[in-house]
Design a binder for these strands. Structure first.
Lengths: 132, 132
DNA sequence: ATTTGATTACGAAGACATTCGTATAAAGGA
DNA sequence: TCCTTTATACGAATGTCTTCGTAATCAAAT
């Protein structure tokens, strides 16, 4: 037994997600590096960030190299999979299982740019091709 | 002062969302009616449902008619607005602000039906018309 | 060697969320 | 009237998230 979270349910909390996002974008990083980025977004103490990352490591959300004095952390869960996980939950609980409902709401509320809309159209076309 | 949650942030929790969904679909209901539906979805005690609904009332998520012995509860927050709220938060925290990213992820994972895709296409067209 | 600064480890407090037992009150039937 | 059922109210226990103070450890500088 090693990893507590090798099961399907990746459910990071709000704060954990912030840290994951930093690591997804930066790649392997120290606590200090992560903390310095978080500090720009909100007020938070260093040991808070540290503790969170330690807990995330216990949960299996992060992996770390502790061979050197300064540990190096890395996301242990893939970004897309995590996004999909959270999204599906939202589709179920908030949109009663209707993905299109969610999509329309997303497009409606979030003033989307012309570019974004075009990109989505292309994406729909691709799905069509694959399905036919 | 009356309503604690007349501000912008509608942030129901998981359980609260379940209750809101029931009320959005059924309309005004008693605790027992809500509870009976929740019971089908998960194991939960009656007083738990009651307590939750009372708390939600305090928070301003529900309004109630307490004139009769059996109180009648109703959602005090509109469904679409709540959905938008949660969705926008997710776009920000999980998808770094990109709605199209979220949309594609939603369409990709949740293998959507042809009908759904067509509906979304139409919707995109409507957005275009309004913007031009 | 001593001091200073950075890092991890530990523990605990505070805030919510969730759960439910128990008390109390009202309503309806026997 | 008295008993049973059904409601609400209240409080408390539990769990989780978040926060941070303090101690211990190590490295580097003086």
């Amino acid at each position: 037994m090693e990893n507590k979270a090798n099961n399907k349910h990746i459910r990071p909390t709000e704060s954990e997600l912030e840290i994951l996002t930093v690591l997804w974008e930066r790649g392997a990083s120290t606590v200090r590096e992560v903390h310095e980025i978080l500090e720009k977004q909100k007020e938070v103490g260093y040991t808070t960030t540290l503790k969170l990352m330690q807990i995330m490591h216990e949960k299996g959300l992060l992996q770390r190299d502790a061979s050197a004095r300064t540990h190096i952390y890395e996301a242990a869960v893939p970004r897309e999979e995590t996004q999909a996980q959270l999204l599906n939950k939202m589709i179920d609980t908030v949109f009663s299982g209707s993905a299109s409902q969610l999509v329309m709401q997303a497009l409606g509320g979030h003033r989307s740019s012309r570019e974004e809309i075009d990109r989505i159209r292309e994406y729909l076309n691709e799905i069509d091709k694959k399905q036919s």
